[in-house]
Design a binder for these strands. Structure first.
Lengths: 107, 107
DNA sequence: ATATCATTCAACCAATTAGTTAAATGATAT
DNA sequence: ATATCATTTAACTAATTGGTTGAATGATAT
């Protein structure tokens, strides 16, 4: 049922706060690797590794322009992750319905 | 902006295929720890550890009934994860809108 | 050709993870 | 009190992760 997809890599990527922060910033607009790294108290090599993990998960891609490499986000992969969670939507909606029912019943 | 909260644990949990499979099965209905473990070629101790990780992420809870412990899924935590991804929804929807526009323009 | 800027690779380290087996605990039944 | 069933804890291992520093590569400018 599960294609052993990228879900390991996608969720593995999202499990790290630095990587989530990188994604949040890159979602706003393309940044070079250097710009991505700037705010963190980390070596460039460390950030480069984070970017590689995000690339493996297909959450970002890089394009070279001259000396620099621009990091851009890959929307479809987020969609894949969202669709995975969508499978569970019924769970919390049912639960919320239950709550509403409770609230209607005992005021 | 980000509560550094459970997202580490939630996505960390979801990064493992055994744990995703456990969640999928438990979503259908409560199972005892033993029932959860049965299909996997893993020791009970290993499955117990997976369950502890899922508990720490608040993706499941356990309730004891006599000798056994029943594992049930915790819907709200899935909602939290879905809401995190929701932040990125614009990304792929824009992209899809772009595609639609393209399709309208060059038929 | 050489220097410089941007980024990655290699080698290493400490902490964490996913698994094992064996012993310990919790809850019930005899 | 003891035996049994269900599950967890402890102690250990091998692999992976997130970080470091220093050397290597890629691309441009001189």
């Amino acid at each position: 049922m599960e294609q052993a997809l990228n879900l390991d890599n996608i969720f593995g990527s999202l499990a790290d706060p630095t990587r989530r922060d990188i994604l949040r910033r890159v979602a706003v607009g393309e940044l070079t690797v250097g710009e991505v790294a700037a705010p963190y108290d980390l070596s460039l090599a460390a950030v480069s590794k984070h970017l590689k993990i995000l690339e493996r998960a297909k959450l970002i891609i890089k394009r070279r322009q001259g000396k620099q490499q621009y990091v851009q986000i890959t929307p479809y992969t987020f969609k894949d992750a969202a669709e995975y969670l969508e499978w569970y939507r019924g769970l919390w909606e049912q639960r919320l319905d239950g709550l509403e029912e409770l609230l209607r019943k005992e005021p």
